[in-house]
Structure formats: C-alpha cells, structure tokens
C-alpha cells in the first residue's frame, strides 16, 4: 500500500505514538495516507478508537514480528 508519509514510532510508549500520529496527520491533506510503525501493543485499540472519533480511516493493519504497522487515511 502506498503512503504519503511515514511515522516511525517504534519503541515509544503510550501516549507518544498517538501524539506523533496526531501531529503528523495535522500536516497532511485530506485522503492522504500515513503509514505508522509501532511496538506498543496497546496502540491498536487506541488508534482504532482515535480514528473513529476524529473522522479519519484506518485502512490497513499488519503485524510483522514485534512491529505493528498501520495505514490511516485522513478524513475530508
């Protein structure tokens, strides 16, 4: 999946992955995709809830070893 921006949040603990995600999304245009890599397992539920409450869309999630990968699309 192609992304417009990449955020490496590996090794960061809550709340930093969401803080960084929010910051990165603020600098993006509608419909652009942000790819995020994290190692904090709790991030998945938090990101799912956060995208819902902010009108963004979680389009894809993958797990590779200890790394969780997400692609989110910025809402209109």
């Amino acid at each position: 999946m192609t992304s417009n921006k990449f955020l490496d949040a590996k090794g960061l603990a809550c709340p930093m992955p969401i803080v960084r995600t929010k910051k990165a999304m603020n600098e993006m245009e509608a419909n652009q995709v942000l790819e995020i890599h994290v190692t904090d397992k709790g991030f998945k539920n938090d990101l799912t809830a956060w995208t819902k409450s902010t009108g963004n869309e979680l389009v894809k999630a993958e797990e590779e070893g200890d790394v969780l990968k997400f692609w989110i699309k910025k809402g209109e």
């Binding site: 809550c14 709340p15 969401i18 803080v19 929010k22 938090d46 809830a49 956060w50 409450s53």
Partner: peptide, 14 residues
Amino acid sequence: EKVSSINVPYFDLL
C-alpha cells in the same frame, strides 16, 4: 462501593 469513574480517552485530551 465508593469508587466512581468516568471515561475520557487520553487521545481526546491531547
């Protein structure tokens, strides 16, 4: 019994 709680996710308080 004497515990009350509310839930506001931290990502709504950034």
